[in-house]
Design a protein around this nucleic acid. Sequence first.
DNA 1: CCCGGAACCTGAAGGC
DNA 2: TGCCTTCAGGTTCCGG
Length: 280
Amino acid sequence: MPELPEVETIVNDLRPMVEGRSIASVSLIWPRMVLQPSAEEFCRRLPGQTIRKITRLGKYLFFRLTSGEILVLHLRMTGVLMFRRTNSASTAPTPYVTAVFTLDDGSELVFCDKRKFGTASLIENVVEIAYKLGPDALDPGITPASLGRKLSKRKAPIKAVLCDQKFVAGIGNMYADEALFSSRIHPLRPANSLSEEETGRLHRAIREVLKMGIANAGATFSDYRRPGGEKGSQQEYFKAAHRGGQTCYVCSTPIERISVRNRGTYFCPRCQGSPTCSGS
DNA sequence: CCCGGAACCTGAAGGC
DNA sequence: TGCCTTCAGGTTCCGG
């Protein structure tokens, strides 16, 4: 599923091809994906606008337009954003298309989404999205101390807190598991039970796993693709996520899979200690 | 405010 | 083979 590193990869790939281009037309195959304004208004306002800049906040994609408005896309779980060039030789039909943005040079930005959870909006100000999010997970303003202060106010399992976008934006299921493995913290530990040392390790681990994910262009377990169709390679380097039953690279104990808040959660029962006290 | 669970969807995988 | 159930897991909404 697209999390911060996957969305960052999409932004990086799209930038040179899309920034400076204008939107010629919009075709909405699944109108219900548009949250605001109405689907009609959405299709009416976009054509003619130039995409000045593409940015990211958490898992949200922002296309900043000349009118000052911002096209917001969210891929949720199975959304894919494909870029097709003007004379794309690939005649293979793209499945699950929910929207097509045709650009002024004939190239296309194609939103595909198997489960139709992905969304699009047109907003006036990023604050309309940002107010419901915590700081971006790679925001340098997040320090071990500020992380510790925020964790101390939450007693939910640390795994659930890391995935809470109001706490920190951009971390999802896979990278939460990776950050907890890397910092040797059990996913069920109450967030407010972490020691200062553990908080420090977690702070470092979050940045590490996300940056590594970006360096490897994201993780493709099933649906995620880069705009050119390529898979990411980060899945090859995961140490916990999606490794249930396989042996831990550190201690050879089988990686376990449990459910935390209805999320599949992978961890090493030996390296990551117990849910109630810090590991050794 | 905090927490947990349901709903939104549908393809893939597993059981019988 | 084929039907049925379950799983996947980001976000929002709702109830306690």
